[in-house]
Structure formats: C-alpha cells, structure tokens
Nucleic acid binder design. Structure first.
Length: 233
DNA sequence: AAAGCTATCAACCGCCATTCG
DNA sequence: GCGAATGGCGGTTGATAGCTT
C-alpha cells in the first residue's frame, strides 16, 4: 500500500524543527495544531507539535530547576487536588504540567522509599532536604526561542483578591512530617501579604506568587464551590 | 576506570472533553 | 442533536546524565 502514507517523525526534536514550529506558532497562534503541523512542513503530528511548544518552546517558560518554594507549593496543591497536574501548573506560572508531574513522580518515589525505611513518622526525613539538594543548573532549553513569542502569549494575571487557596486539610496530613516549608506556608495562608514582603525582600523574584497563587481563577473558584465537575472531582 | 544503579526529563499514548459544521 | 475533528490531560516509557560502588 503505497508510499502515500506520510512518514511521521518521532523522537527528539531537532533545533531546525523547533525553529519551524516556533515560526508557525508565531504566525498562526497557539491553536489548530494539526494545521500548524502541516503548514510548518514538520512531519510531526499536531499533538506532538503542541506538546513540544507547551513543554519546551514557549517563551514564557521558567528556566532552571524548581525552587524549594515552588516544590513546596506543588506538595500543597497536590495534597489538595491530587494528580491534577495541569491545574497545579496553572498555579506555577512558567512551569508545565509535565515538569511538575515528573518532579512529583521522582519525589514520590523517594518518599515511598523513605516511608518503607522509616516506620515512625518522627524519623521521616524532611523532603525539603532532598528538594534543596537540587543544584544542577541547565542552559535554558528555549533560550534561542525568545523571539518567537506569539502575540497571544500567556501573561494574564488574575485580579487580586484576598481569598486564600485553602482548604489545606489534606495538605496538613503532611504536617507531622515536620516540613519547615509547610510551616512557612501556613503563615502564607494566614497572611499572604507578609509572604509577598518575604519574597520581595530577600528571597528572590516571586511576584508571580503574589499575583496568582493566592487567587483562584474564576474557573477554579467555580469548581471549588460546585465541588462537581467530572473532570476534576 | 568501569560497571551498575538512580534520577531526571522529553516524548508518546490513549482516553475524555470540547468545539465545530 | 449528532458525529467528526481537535485539543487537553494524566499515565507511562525510553534515553541519558550523574552518582556510587
């Protein structure tokens, strides 16, 4: 059956492909991925193009490894929402669901090992020590892509509100593990403005925390209130 | 120095939801 | 209202870099 069937490229992306994809996204926008795949001349599926863009090429992606604060936040949100990676990712601007998912997977593996070895909670090793041990700095993978930001690049900041992200009932299951960062987070919940000062003062650029972390998007608020949307609950 | 092990991350797959004609 | 096309999501896999013995 003939050579009509177009061969699909698979596996790692070449830089040339990245550039083609980025140009096409710039042209068309972040939609119609099948169309983008065709127009760009890439022998990739639309899905593959979308994934590559979302997880690797998007100019607004945050570079480098997750900070301890981000990791703590992932812990909190995962405790609250479970494996809703994309939802969690929305709380960490510049991070992708895939990235968070990967982190959690490796983290959980560690945690499971810790649990097996330590039956008593008091001997549980503080996961942040594992988190903080990350020190590898990578060259920004999409550094060469900055010029290809599409016009509809993500930059929306939801309007500030003092509504907290809570409830963290589930997250407090972690409390007996003596996580320093979670104790700190408890303070954040109590007074997010202090938290903002905390980051502004000396702990690095975290304005996105104050912009978005403390404020549920409308969508999420609805979900929280209704407590029922097949996808999330 | 080499082999084995572990951690990390990019990419793929299948399913489900949403959109469009 | 229905079916097809498309997009989004979560789970999983495979490659490889880094670490340990």
């Amino acid at each position: 059956m003939g050579g009509e069937i177009e061969e699909r490229r698979r596996g790692p992306w070449m830089e040339e492909e990245d550039i083609k994809l980025a140009m096409s996204v710039k042209l068309i926008g972040e939609r119609r991925w099948d169309h983008i795949a065709q127009v760009s001349g890439l022998k990739r599926s639309g899905k593959s193009c979308r994934l590559r863009w979302m997880n690797y090429l998007r100019p607004d992606l945050k570079q480098g490894r997750m900070t301890a604060q981000e990791e703590c936040l992932v812990l909190q949100l995962h405790a609250q929402w479970g494996n809703k990676w994309s939802r969690i990712a929305r709380r960490l601007p510049g991070r992708t669901d895939n990235e968070i998912k990967n982190y959690w997977r490796t983290h959980l593996r560690k945690e499971a090992q810790e649990r097996c070895q330590a039956t008593s909670p008091s001997s549980f090793q503080d996961p942040t020590s594992l988190l903080l041990s990350h020190s590898k700095d990578k060259e920004p993978p999409n550094a060469h892509m900055k010029d290809f930001a599409p016009d509809n690049s993500l930059s929306g900041s939801s309007s500030p509100s003092s509504e907290s992200v809570t409830t963290f009932d589930d997250y407090f299951l972690y409390a007996d593990r003596s996580l320093p960062c979670l104790q700190m987070d408890e303070k954040w919940i109590a007074d997010p403005h202090d938290e903002a000062e905390f980051w502004n003062s000396s702990h690095g650029p975290s304005d996105y925390y104050t912009d978005s972390l403390w404020n549920l998007e409308e969508e999420d608020l609805k979900l929280e209130k209704c407590g029922a949307n097949g996808r999330y609950f």
